[in-house]
Design a protein around this nucleic acid. Sequence first.
DNA 1: GTGTATATCTCGGGG
DNA 2: CCCCGAGGTATACAC
Lengths: 219, 219
Amino acid sequence: MRLVIARCSVDYEGRLQAHLPEATRLIMVKADGCVAVHADGGAYKPLNWMNAPNRLSEDDEGWTVTSPKGEVLRIWLHEIYADSSHEMGVDPGLQKDGVEAHLQELLARDVEMLGNGWKLVRREYPTDIGPVDLLCRDDEGMAVAVEIKRRGEIDGVEQLTRYLDRLDRDGNLSPVRGVFAAQEIKPQARVLAEARGIRCVTLDYDELRGIESNELKLF
Amino acid sequence: MRLVIARCSVDYEGRLQAHLPEATRLIMVKADGCVAVHADGGAYKPLNWMNAPNRLSEDDEGWTVTSPKGEVLRIWLHEIYADSSHEMGVDPGLQKDGVEAHLQELLARDVEMLGNGWKLVRREYPTDIGPVDLLCRDDEGMAVAVEIKRRGEIDGVEQLTRYLDRLDRDGNLSPVRGVFAAQEIKPQARVLAEARGIRCVTLDYDELRGIESNELKLF
DNA sequence: GTGTATATCTCGGGG
DNA sequence: CCCCGAGGTATACAC
């Protein structure tokens, strides 16, 4: 990784056009070739950047970074205050817990959380417009499509509605009911869901994990 | 801005839980207090980070960053290879061109692009679920709601559909037609839009700018 | 490759 | 403050 502190101005032309007036900034070049120009504030997003793959050429006025898609990032270096390089090796990567995939996995293990006698048909049940998170049968054998979100918002209700519309055309499933399950459901999303006859369920991640732990204890 | 190159491991607990095994990385601390841990690859996104505002405390094993929302980022510093600080001052910021706001502005100036005799009622026409990009009257005085996107995808069609549903309840406007305008419209979005009676229009950004230039030339 | 959904999305604007 | 919408979104995953 190369780190350059410099007074610079920047022009980007590609998916849009953007310009950075002259100021002191950090320019970071990673081993994969990606370039990022950071100001001393504004969270982790750089002011300007160029993703890998690209080609970087230096001349006496600055750098030109060109991507195969025709994007160009031009960095004018007016004064360089520091320029260092560091070997880091390959990163072992981030281990995450608590994202939607994990919620889905936990709920799939115990669909009875949603209703007594419910059975899981399958996770990621396919439709021609994309997969439904869970397809279940309730205690009376009726089909139920479940959409799982970490945060339940209107888009998620729209998504489930599209799936329900599709699934309902399948004679082996129809009529299909819907359940919108999330750790947190926004009021607007709840109103829209309930207006469409979709049941809303709030998930407790710790409780789901607790169930998982209890199951593990049994073996 | 402080830049530390160190062999470190990291734990984050907040919106989710995440762990980074020991490796050499860049730790960036910006003037506003935000912290980012970067590997030498993987685009501009850090592996782990903490937004401002937060509180950073150092001890002999590493750093603890705490946010007012209860998030905690713990960085264990095993070996420090470099540690430098740089004054940068306030950044003048990025100047952009070509985003949706500009498309909206250009189209608002010349709604006749959409149909002869069309008049703009107003930009950002309010409804109780959010503003419609443009509300127009066509040559016969019928109301038309226009949703503008750079890239037209299914979400945009859903959004316009919700607005149309709302606007149609207004006796002074009903019936309201819809136009979905974008630089590029995905086939699925087009199918969905047309199935709902929404007209799709592809925008040519250069042509819109050309109109603007021509208008400017007249004055 | 396209298409779809997710994200500790980030970021900005408006109430 | 939250809510909402846009993004050069980026990223992962299925088809």
